[in-house]
Each structure stands twice: as C-alpha cells, then as structure tokens.
Write a protein that binds this DNA or RNA. Structure first.
Lengths: 157, 157
DNA sequence: TATTGTTATACTCTATAACTATA
DNA sequence: TATAGTTATAGAGTATAACAATA
C-alpha cells in the first residue's frame, strides 16, 4: 500500500473512533440526564457544578468554576442563582478582592449532593460494566493522551 | 485490601473514566461546533443528518434517521425542513406506505457535504493526533465494548 | 388500533456582548 | 486599562404531547 492510501486509512480510523466516542458518550449522557431529571429533579450542569464544589470544600471562584465546567461565565451565574435560591450553594466574599466571589456548597447542598452522587456512581458503574478493571485503566490512560493533546493545541484555531 | 474497599476503588475508577470521556468529547465537540458555524454556517445536528444520508445513498426514512441520530422525531422534521429549504436534502415518497417519507441528499447536498466532510476529517485527525495508530485501534475496540454493553442494557431503566 | 411524520410548545443550555464594580 | 461577575439576548438543541394521515 502506498503512503497516501495508508494515510487515508488512518484518517478514516480517526473518524470512526470519533464517531464511536460520540455515540458512547451520548448513550451514557442521555441516560444520566433523564435519570437526574426523573429521580432528583435536577440537570447535568447543576450536578456538575455541585460536583466541582464537592471536590473543593474551600470553595471556588466563579471564573474557576467557569473554566472547569468548560462554559462561559454568564451560564455559571445562572446555574449558581438557581442553586443558591434552593440553599444548596452560597456566595461568599473573597478577602482582598471585592470583585470576586467564592461559591461553596452549603451543608444542605453537601448532603443533597452526597445522596445523588452515590446513585449516580452506580449508573456509571453499570454503564461501564462491560469492561474489565484493566480495560478501564487502559481507556483512562489513552483518553488522557487525547485530553493532553487537545489542551496543548488549544490555541490552534 | 478487603473486597468492599476494592469494590469502592473500582467504582471510583469507573467514575474517573466517565468524567474523562465527557471532558474529551466536550473538548472536541466544542471545537467542531464552533468551526462548523464559523467556516460553514452550519450546526452539528445538520452535519450529522447529512452524514447519515451520505452513508445511505438510497435514503433513509424519518424514523430511521431519528433512531440513528439518537433524537426524537420532531427534531428530525425541523432539521430536515431547514436542509430541504436550502435544497441540500429532499423528501421522496416510499412505495407501499404513503405515511412514510424517504430523505435523500440532493446533488447539491452531496457536494456541499463532501466539501465539509473533508475539512471536518482534518479536524478530527488533528484532535486525535496524540495517539498512535495502534492506540486508535485499541480505543475503538474498547469503546465498542461500552457501546455493545449499553445497547444490551437498553431496557434496564 | 398502531404507526409515520408533523406541529406546537416549553425548557435547558449555550455563547456573545454590553454593563457594573472593583483592581 | 484590565479583571470579576452580572445581565440581556438570541439561538441551538432537546423532549413531550397532541394531531393528521395511513396502515
């Protein structure tokens, strides 16, 4: 096979992989979204925001939340408004910078999240139950390379 | 380590893998969405619909498109309306079932899609360029297991 | 009665850009 | 001037459910 034909094949493989990644993610994501709605009357971005805060008990600034959730700032404001109205998170002042706000889970929020997270983890374990422990590790490692490469190429428009 | 602790660890691994899958997919998807908009004034669902038709030159019925795109019927009608108005796809009658419609790419649609698809493939190749040929194959295989397991467990609400 | 596709509706999520208040 | 967060807006994307035509 000549080089060009080989390149074409490799390109096709990349595309096929991408379509499969998309399919797998959508299958799991749709299931998670509908169960979050049905069982907890919440949404994935709300769950995601609370999960970020759970991992940072000292709280996170709005722009840090925005970066981690990979959405723009206005959206974080909206979701935070909802969760604050339900007393699940709170905005607190930041020392030495009166522009910034620190968002934290409230006690009620921490408890509500713990309940959801336990069930949520079960959904994910089920979804990935077709893989051996070792295959999970391999996937994690390979996707780590993808992530790293994407982040390195961030600027390349 | 006792069995319970081991189970907890494996659960955590599954969750970590899922979060990484989600991150990778979102990184690539956001880039693809914004480039489709900027360079071709189109959206991912529109591109996806055309891609499905491209793979089925004989055309697809609305409900088959709906199934493959993993969205409900009403949405397919809306996207098809747009693309039909731009003469990129056409609705044709189906023999022996006057309820059904067959959607096909027009010649113009086939050409427009070919142009987009070539550029799109380059984006994906770039995004996955951090992986060797062999790693691409491994990922494809392992995600195939995930997909298969999800489809097998479809009913399990 | 069941199925195909359409219509109507409502809601979530998102980006963009203008705005304010601080720095 | 630059940054942190908010507001306002518009559009994408989706599900749901009622509907018409046909099977």
């Amino acid at each position: 096979m000549d080089l060009e034909a080989r390149a074409h094949e490799e390109h096709h493989d990349a595309l096929r992989l991408w379509l499969r990644m998309l399919t797998c993610t959508q299958l799991i994501e749709q299931r998670v979204r509908s169960r979050l709605r049905e069982q907890f009357e919440t949404t994935l971005p709300r769950f995601d925001l609370m999960a970020q805060l759970e991992r940072s008990p000292e709280g996170l600034k709005m722009n840090e939340l925005s970066r981690r959730m990979m959405v723009t700032g206005g959206n974080v404001t909206g979701i935070t408004d909802q969760l604050e109205a339900e007393d699940l998170v709170e905005r607190t002042a930041v020392a030495n910078d009166r522009r910034a706000l620190c968002i934290r889970l409230t006690d009620a929020g921490r408890k509500a999240f713990a309940d959801m997270a336990a069930v949520h983890e079960g959904w994910i374990v089920d979804a990935l139950a077709g893989l051996s422990e070792r295959e999970v590790a391999t996937l994690h490692k390979l996707l780590g390379k993808v992530k790293q490469h994407m982040n390195a190429n961030e600027v390349t428009a």
